[in-house]
Design a protein around this nucleic acid. Structure first.
Lengths: 201, 201
DNA sequence: AGGTGATGTTACCGGTCGGTAACATCGTCA
DNA sequence: TGACGATGTTACCGACCGGTAACATCACCT
């Protein structure tokens, strides 16, 4: 028998190749870290040839850019899904977001906030990926401030910053603390407390 | 003139070589990330030869272990320094810790919590460095719980977890948010709020 | 049918990684 | 003085990194 049979050549058009590469990059960059994953691993996971990658993307950095954009879209999808449940009650919307975040971050496959991970992976604050991260966080703080204002907080900026710290804390703690610690179980109640305290005159 | 003059051979004994290597590793691993720094960069920073490293340390992993131990010692030094200022007032001690943390994390050279960074750099929870990190955090939560108890909190475990989340949040936010955001300025007040709320009947 | 452009495959480039062998050179102590 | 052990220096190993050239093969359109 022929033990050296080559696998059949499979041909995929450029668009599907690009999509599969992006899917593979999203999976691997998030799970293993963008700097720990080589392009060879990406194309293997995507089931395409390395040249297919470099014909669709100019470089690994370009792939990283697209990865960040995907993560950004996904993140705001999470936010919108939580907030839409309470369109006329900003305080409830905030509480909902923390409940949903605690749920997501408690998943065993959760590997933390992709943006926090990027910030750790790239030491230079001027790196384009770090700039992207800072921009995402800036928009998040803005959204939190807007919600805190609508909720009627005495000092909306202060409440928003406190909640932003809690959010980052949930991200980091999901990776630093052992799962048995169940630190995230305290997230919703702590957020509720901050929100409630911000309403009192 | 002789433009190819070799630098003079400098000889240092094993102990000072080991110390300089550890210092260099601590600086570089923290600033750039342990996986982003090669042993060549470490020996260059230390001003010693690569063989001097491998005669003192069995591997880069061994160096990483020593690095983690150093950071652990340093961390508990910070904790003790804050707590010692209020030996008979646990609530004040907690508040002091957050004030000092906000100060440290606001330093421009601050590169976040070394343990958070390790957790991001190494994807596998079973990796020895991740286990070390989880152990440090477990001890921190224990210390916080003990202080919350001494402070007279109604639910010490809940307060400790909330504060632990805030701490991790300060670490992560120091790297994700742009400095202009001054998110850390909200840290002490938020911690104070949580502590005060935990005391009320 | 023939040609043309997109895709797949292989092999390779220079650079960096962690780690080591071999040898030169030094200080120290008998 | 001579020998021995510790240190410094150089060169190298195989593996992986991001990226590319050259060529084989296919689909599709005229």
């Amino acid at each position: 028998m022929n033990t050296t049979a080559k696998p059949p050549r499979t041909i995929v058009d450029a668009d599907t190749a690009a999509a599969r590469i992006l899917d593979a990059a999203e999976t691997l960059f998030y799970r293993e870290g963008s700097r720990n994953v080589g392009v060879d691993a990406v194309v293997k996971e995507a089931g395409v040839n390395k040249m297919s990658l470099y014909r669709q993307f100019s470089s690994k950095d370009e792939l990283l850019r697209r990865y960040l954009q995907r993560r950004d879209d996904r993140f705001w999808g999470y936010v919108d899904a939580s907030l839409e449940l309470h369109p006329h009650d900003a305080a409830a919307a905030l509480r909902q977001f923390f409940a949903d975040l605690a749920e997501r971050a408690g998943n065993p496959a959760y590997r933390g906030c992709p943006f926090v991970n990027i910030a750790v992976e790239y030491p230079e604050r001027e790196h384009f990926a770090r700039v992207f991260v800072a921009d995402n966080k800036r928009q998040l703080l803005q959204k939190l401030t807007e919600l805190a204002t609508r909720a009627g907080a005495r000092d909306p900026a202060a409440l928003a910053k406190g909640l932003a710290l809690l959010i980052e804390g949930a991200y980091a703690a999901s990776q630093t603390y052992a799962p048995e610690t169940e630190l995230l179980s305290a997230l919703p109640a702590t957020a509720d407390l901050l929100i409630a305290a911000a309403m009192l005159s």
